[in-house]
Simulated assay, not measured.
Amino acid sequence: MRAIIAVLDSFGIGSLPDADRFGDTGANTYGRIVEGRAASPAGPLQIPNLLSLGLGRAAHLADGSVAELTNGPATGLYGAARELSKGKDTPSGHWEMMGLPVEEDWGYFPRTVPTFPAELTEAVIREGKLPGILGDCHASGTEIIEELGEEHIRTGKPICYTSADSVYQIAAHETHFGLERLWELCHTVRKLVDPYRVGRVIARPFVGEKRGEFQRTGNRHDYATPPYRDTLLDINKAQGKEVIGIGKIPDLFAHRGVTQEIAAHGNEAVFDATIAHTKSAPEGSIIFANFVDFDTLFGHRRNLMGYAAALEAFDKRIPELKTALREDDLVIFTADHGCDPTWQGSDHTREHIPVIAFGPKIGTGSVGIRTTFADIGQSIAKHLGLAPLSVGTSFL
């Protein structure tokens, strides 16, 4: 008896009732992808396995304007979940999923230039032994690297920027600045931003020598503030069971509650690792994977066609995962927030997330609209025979 959670990072299915607070009313990552592909020369989105499990029905629950796009009777449990946490960040989505909503607002930086407080910037330069910083604004990561990459190489000043999320991001060249030096700088800045309640410091290494050649690499690291109390991961680990974090999962939980950390760069590598560990993990294990490409390569970059192709590639591998399952396994496909590729700007969008659950002994049908992402963790706790979490209601 094991639980496998696949987070399709940013795959929202319709704006939440409070989306107006975030300027996201009407955002719908899945819905806009379906519409965009249907109107394109490529034709309709081809995701038969996800539709069979109930994704189309879940999307219709979240946003009645989205067609159900059913593919016969649902072969899994399906529904949508709303976020209790007050933001639309990656850590808050993952933490709430594992039974720990973020009850207070993260700290955010204003949309001013400069965006960072002067005393913080002075401390970053002093403690990081830097000649200065570049950026100091809200920005798209790919765009600001393109704009400032050459100056960064010339001056040795890292590129520091933020977004609508609670983040302090640092981009630096892997060789001219140094990858290890970037990671060490992020460790330093992590401590400096704690008084500002910043959720994550993110290392954004890149390569290339001039404008038009710069590319971010897979050596990104997220330095998250630690969860403020135990999550489902901690609880399972305390029972002597395995918690296998694939991709950026260990970073998001500040490496707490994880017994095995599996580095994997890109959706295909994450799926390879997920299937491999589904085949080998012992009973009682939690296998927790984040498919980051949906967010970083397509959502933030507002690349609808790329997002659609990534969904199709994910869908094609679902039969492999099913073949690797044992009789008592539970699989949950979900997300952590939205990132509508047609929305203004380049930030996350406040949306429902899909809840798709299946396994050889898991039933079928609607689980409705859940009032918290924590229902996912509560259901996993019940499945694994763990004590109930303090938040959430099981749908099993």
Rank of each mutant, 00 (worst) to 15 (best):
T393C: 05
F373W: 01
L325Q: 07
T334N: 09
R317C: 10
G284V: 10
N303P: 11
P341W: 04
D347H: 13
S394G: 12
K382Q: 15
W343M: 01
S285Q: 12
G359N: 02
R370V: 01
H337Q: 08
G284T: 03
T278H: 10
D293N: 12
P282V: 09
R326W: 06
Y307L: 15
A273L: 09
E312Y: 01
D328S: 13
S379W: 07
G377Q: 09
H300F: 09
E351W: 13
L321D: 02
G365V: 00
P319D: 02
P354N: 02
L297T: 07
Q344M: 11
T371C: 12
S379G: 14
R370K: 14
G365M: 08
A289G: 06
I275A: 02
G368P: 14
P360A: 03
V391E: 15
L304I: 13
G359V: 10
R350D: 09
H383N: 11
D347Y: 10
T296P: 06
G306D: 08
V367W: 10
P388R: 08
H277V: 04
D329R: 09
N303F: 02
D375W: 05
D375V: 06
E327I: 03
G377L: 03
A309E: 02
E351A: 13
S346Q: 14
T372R: 00
L311A: 11
A310L: 13
Q344S: 14
G284P: 13
P354F: 03
T278E: 00
Q344N: 15
L384F: 06
T349K: 03
F395A: 00
T296F: 08
T364A: 03
S394Q: 11
H277M: 06
D293W: 04
G345K: 10
A273H: 05
L297W: 00
T334H: 14
S280N: 12
D272C: 07
T349G: 04
L389S: 04
T364V: 13
K279W: 02
F288T: 04
L389T: 00
T364W: 08
A276D: 13
G284H: 03
H352W: 06
F288S: 05
E312T: 08
E283A: 15
Q378W: 01
L321E: 09
A357T: 01
I318K: 07
L386D: 01
F271Q: 04
R350C: 11
I286C: 11
G299I: 00
A313E: 14
H348Q: 14
P388T: 14
T274V: 11
K279Q: 15
I356P: 08
W343H: 15
D340S: 13
R302L: 09
A310F: 04
A357W: 00
A313R: 12
H348F: 06
I318L: 14
D315P: 10
I356E: 04
A374Q: 04
T296E: 02
F291G: 03
D293L: 02
F373T: 02
D315F: 08
G359D: 05
A324I: 00
T323C: 01
T278R: 04
L389Y: 10
R317M: 14
R301L: 13
L386V: 10
G306N: 09
T296K: 10
R302Q: 03
A289F: 08
G359M: 05
M305K: 07
N303L: 09
I286H: 03
S366A: 07
T296Q: 12
